[in-house]
Design a protein around this nucleic acid. Sequence first.
DNA 1: TAAAATCTCGCAAAATATCGCAAAAACCTG
DNA 2: CAGGTTTTTGCGATATTTTGCGAGATTTTA
Lengths: 249, 249
Amino acid sequence: MLKKERQAYILHKVNLHNKVLSSTLSDEMKVSEDTIRRDLHELADAGKIIKVHGGALSQSFNEVHFPSNGVYSQNKKSVIAQKAVSLIKNGMFVLTSGGTTILEMARSLPPQLKATFISGSIPAILEYMHHPNIEVILVGDKISKNSKITVGIEAIAKIRQMQADLCFLGTYAINLKHGITENDWDIVQLKRAMIESSKKVVCLTISEKLDTVQPIQICELKKIHTLITELEPTDPKLKPYVDAGIEVL
Amino acid sequence: MLKKERQAYILHKVNLHNKVLSSTLSDEMKVSEDTIRRDLHELADAGKIIKVHGGALSQSFNEVHFPSNGVYSQNKKSVIAQKAVSLIKNGMFVLTSGGTTILEMARSLPPQLKATFISGSIPAILEYMHHPNIEVILVGDKISKNSKITVGIEAIAKIRQMQADLCFLGTYAINLKHGITENDWDIVQLKRAMIESSKKVVCLTISEKLDTVQPIQICELKKIHTLITELEPTDPKLKPYVDAGIEVL
DNA sequence: TAAAATCTCGCAAAATATCGCAAAAACCTG
DNA sequence: CAGGTTTTTGCGATATTTTGCGAGATTTTA
């Protein structure tokens, strides 16, 4: 069997079934796995397939385009993300909402971290999926196209069944008197459920949102254990929250 | 044997078998391999064949077996997508699996269509989300990073609760004797549940997958109502399926 | 964490290709 | 037809390509 012939067959098979195993191909064509590997590499270098451990995948199947959101307050958010990530330990179950701050955190997860992330936010899920060691649990229900998150009774019921170690909330507004507040009824329901199902609740927010308020209350301040902003914990803006008994990072 | 004669024979043989080996030809015509090589070079320079190490391949070989980056099968898939879309009416509840064929269908949905799509496939969900009038129900569970789809008991239980009008299955392998078959246990479970929960089951598949088989059976052929390929319904390859009582589009 | 599978790397054998050359064959041309 | 020219062919020496193998690194799996 000619080399080109072999490669054509491999390509044909990848396009048909979206994946091939080196071992199977080696068997089928009676050549060593080394040869197959070399073929796969050449095809991969030519951009026709994607080489992976044990075989190869089709190009088209991997095209999951994911939204790279605007660079609004990006550096602030990555400061927040770093602090948030430090709270996550191996083996934890982590509930997360959606929002750009959460996304930034998702991108900052260290590769060796092994944990389970639970979310209904599509953009967040896409980020978690790219991580090598993270298990991803998707909370299903109807998708709100607006917020790209699953909302509804099913989702809430499912979250209530959970017992997570940690809950990260991207925060829309927070102040001393009303706690955290939102302007979307569905999201409020979800976040309430998330708070109830977690041992520890962490609010992520950029300092602009401190001391602001929105129409619907999610929970009082005292339900929150930790508040993370891009500011130093000693910053005077944060003093009221520290005084209220919240851990501030 | 004359040079021209030799070359004509070589060309004939290439077109017949799609490949020739220098060693074989040298043997057959009792000339040195150098001579054969020179012949092959000339034919290749004239664009009649493609010279490769060890022999030569036919032109058509390159075109047919070497689809440059999926354009070739992409057309097939969009033909399939068009046919599939025509089955969806306003107000329907539609269950779909994952796979590139399903993705192509998702991209082909007409903007004014109002329907509800249910799936656990992340790439498919992303497509549905872009559509202005479609409601999207996401089936939640643990995500299989490999197939980018939610798999597990929760997902299956949720699907069992549904009563969909239509179920579109991207098909891995189908033949008369074993019906539709797969090689991934989790996906098999999901598809079985989907079939049970739908009034009508539609299989989408490119013709290459007809009459092929994989290790695990999803269901027998008779459970399928409609089969869609890129071929004309009258194509002889489809006759056995028509005879088996399946509607073929 | 340990075993199993897979990968990488360098090497060596085998197959194939290239090059220059020269003999043989074919082909002019007067 | 003789003598010269061109084409074709095979051969030897030397590259290049392809392939399989073993050892050790890396990744996956249980």
